[in-house]
């Protein structure tokens, strides 16, 4: 029984040597690892040691080893962000310095602001207002030239900066429609009568037999403080213009009745803080030039 540590007997049948290990008389042929594999393994070990020396690697009491290169992911990302800001600064500084009106009047700035605004819109605004700013039920269409909080550059800028009914921002747009039905300010019949009248404001047909005179009186008593006697709304309190075919919550009588019943209004976050000022400016110009700016 051969039992050497290394090297074995010559095996005549195969022409190879054995490992020298013999198990109950059965010997194992010596078939070493392929050299390329073995050298790759050694190479990896050497690489790992170099890596430990150059980069942060071993946790130790009081802090991990820092590595000779001083590489640090937080430093790297800070530097990359600085470089990014620097690369944009030529245009961003101009954007920050110019007024909104000047941006729109300068083709170069306008093109940059619209491009940056489009990117920021896709990431931040489209979940509510839609990819094409077309809005959806409860979320205003920004192409329609109808503005709850005003459609001038400065008004749009204020709305983006401070949001609407966003309680965390003290400068946010305030103004909430009362829950006329739920809070018992109007009964079901009165709400129905008002809804018929409201539909006529935009040229839609009321239900047959609707008492429009009474509806008008109820509208003036309850709704006109915000929506105006002519129903054209008021951007100071976010009261919608009721005389157009642009509807935030739908044009049917049921939609209108439900809105009078529950009141309230949509909430838009304040973007100040989350977005920097030049991005908000770019967004303002982008939204203003979508097709509905005043």
């Amino acid at each position: 029984m051969a039992d050497h540590a290394h090297g074995g007997d010559y095996d005549a049948a195969t022409g190879k040597t054995t490992t020298g290990h013999s198990w109950d008389g059965i010997s194992e042929l010596n078939t070493p690892l392929p050299r390329w594999w073995l050298y790759t393994l050694y190479g990896c070990i050497v690489w790992a040691i170099i890596y430990w020396v150059l980069f942060p690697a071993w946790p130790w009491f009081g802090g991990a080893t820092k590595g000779l290169l001083g590489w640090n992911s937080r430093t790297v990302v800070a530097r990359e962000l600085d470089e990014l800001r620097a690369s944009r600064s030529a245009m961003n500084d101009k954007l920050a310095a110019a007024s909104l009106q000047q941006i729109e009047a300068t083709p170069e700035l306008l093109a940059f602001a619209r491009a940056e605004g489009a990117a920021a819109f896709a990431q931040n605004c489209s979940p509510c207002h839609g990819a094409g700013a077309q809005g959806s039920r409860g979320y205003p269409n920004l192409n329609a030239d109808r503005w709850l909080w005003g459609g001038t550059l400065d008004q749009i800028h204020t709305t983006i900066t401070h949001g609407a009914r966003w309680t965390a921002d003290p400068d946010t747009h305030a103004g909430v429609m009362p829950s006329f039905g739920r809070d018992g300010l109007l009964n079901k019949e009165e709400i129905s009568t008002i809804a018929d009248y409201v539909r006529t404001l935009s040229g839609n047909a009321p239900d047959a037999g609707a008492d429009l005179a009474k509806g008008k009186q109820l509208f003036i008593d309850n709704c006109s403080p915000c929506h105006g006697e002519d129903g054209k709304g008021n951007v100071d309190v976010g009261a919608a213009n009721l005389t157009t075919q642009v509807w935030l919550y739908g044009p049917t009588k049921a939609d209108i009745m439900h809105r009078i019943e529950v009141g309230g209004g949509g909430v838009m976050p304040a973007w100040k803080g989350r977005l920097d000022e030049s991005t908000i400016k770019a967004l303002t110009v982008f939204v203003h030039t979508l097709g509905g700016g005043k």
Partner: peptide, 22 residues
């Protein structure tokens, strides 16, 4: 947190495609 309104989250949980078609 704070990126969208409570109502948006409610609409979105109920039917994500209604507010984000893709």
């Amino acid at each position: 947190g704070g990126k969208y309104s409570d109502d948006w989250h409610r609409d979105h949980l109920r039917h994500p495609q209604a507010v984000v078609p893709a």
